[in-house]
C-alpha cells in the first residue's frame, strides 16, 4: 500500500508546470524515504531530478517500494481539477496498474477522486557523480527567469561567466549582443532578494536558451534558485521546495566545434 497526503495540491501543480515542457512521461519511484523522479528530456540534453522527502508530507506510508509510470499531461489534467488549497492524497495498491488522486476541500464540503492508468516505462536511471562545483550562485529565481527570457530574444545560447566580481550572462545574434551582470549583494536581512557567489575557480560555460527558459517554469516553487557550475560538466539549476525537497535540472553545456 502506498499513500501520500499533502495539504496543498498547489505544490504538485507547480511541479507539473515546471517539468511538462521537458517530459511527456516519467516514473515516480516511491520508497520509505520519499518520492523520486529522474528523467531525461526527449533529446537527452537535460535531466530532471525531483526529490520529495517522506517527512515533508502530512501523511506518508509506503509498505513496499514501487515505481509508477505516469503520463504527465494526463496527471496535469487531473491536478487542474483540484483547487490550490485542496488537500491531495495519492494512493496505490502494491502491484497496482492504477493510481488514485483524491482531492479534499478545506472544509470537507467537496471530495473528488481521479483514477489514472499507470504506464510501464522502460526508463534508464543515470548515476550522477558527486561534484565539488567551482562556482555556486544563489540568486532570486524571478531574476534568473527574467534574464533568460530577456537574453533569449537575441540569441540561441547564453554564456554564463562567473568570477569573484559577479556573474555575467551574455548572448549575441543577428541584432547584436546583450550582457547582464549581477553582483553579489550585501543585503543580509532580505535573504530572498540576495545574490551570493561561492567561487573556487572562475567558470565560463555556454547553454541553450531554450532549456534554461524551460527550467525557469519552476520559478513559482522557490524564491531563490541555485546555479552550480564547473568546467566541462552539466550545469545544475536547483529549486528548493520548502520543507519538502528539491527540483533539479541538469543541462549539458554547448562546446566549441
Amino acid at each position: 500500500m502506498f499513500e501520500a497526503r499533502l495539504v496543498s495540491s498547489s505544490t504538485f501543480k507547480k511541479i507539473l508546470d515546471a517539468v511538462k515542457d521537458l517530459l511527456n512521461e516519467a516514473s515516480f519511484d516511491c520508497s520509505e524515504s520519499g518520492i523520486q523522479l529522474q528523467a531525461m528530456d526527449n533529446s537527452h540534453v537535460s535531466l530532471v531530478s525531483l526529490m520529495l522527502r517522506s517527512d515533508g508530507f502530512d501523511k506518508y506510508r509506503c509498505d513496499r517500494s514501487l515505481t509508477m509510470g505516469m503520463n504527465l499531461a494526463n496527471m496535469a489534467k487531473i491536478f487542474k481539477c483540484a483547487n490550490n488549497d485542496d488537500t491531495v492524497t495519492i494512493k496505490a495498491q502494491d502491484d497496482a496498474d492504477t493510481v488514485t488522486f483524491m482531492f479534499e476541500a478545506k472544509k470537507q464540503e467537496k471530495i473528488s477522486d481521479y483514477e489514472m492508468k499507470l504506464m510501464n516505462l522502460d526508463q534508464e536511471h543515470l548515476g550522477i557523480p558527486e561534484t565539488d562545483f567551482s562556482c555556486v550562485i544563489r540568486m532570486p529565481s524571478p531574476e534568473f527567469a527574467r534574464i533568460c527570457r530577456d537574453l533569449s530574444q537575441f540569441g540561441e545560447s547564453i554564456v554564463i561567466s562567473c568570477t569573484k566580481e559577479g556573474v555575467k550572462f551574455s548572448t549575441g545574434g543577428d541584432i547584436g549582443t546583450a550582457n547582464v551582470k549581477i553582483a553579489q549583494t550585501n543585503n543580509f536581512d532580505k535573504e530572498e532578494e540576495s545574490v551570493t557567489i561561492e567561487m573556487q575557480e572562475p567558470v565560463t560555460l555556454t547553454f541553450a536558451c531554450q532549456y534554461l527558459n524551460s527550467f525557469t517554469k519552476a520559478t513559482p516553487l522557490a524564491p531563490q534558485v541555485q546555479l552550480s557550475m564547473s568546467d566541462n560538466v552539466p550545469l545544475v539549476v536547483e529549486y528548493q521546495i520548502p520543507d519538502l525537497g528539491h527540483l533539479r535540472f541538469y543541462l549539458a553545456p554547448k562546446i566549441e566545434d
Binding site: G127, I128, Y250, A252, P253
Partner: peptide
C-alpha cells in the same frame, strides 16, 4: 560555432 552535448556524455546508466 558550438555543438550541443548530450547529458549521456556525462552521466552513465546505473
Amino acid at each position: 560555432h558550438s555543438k550541443q552535448k548530450s547529458i549521456l556524455d556525462y552521466f552513465k546508466s546505473d
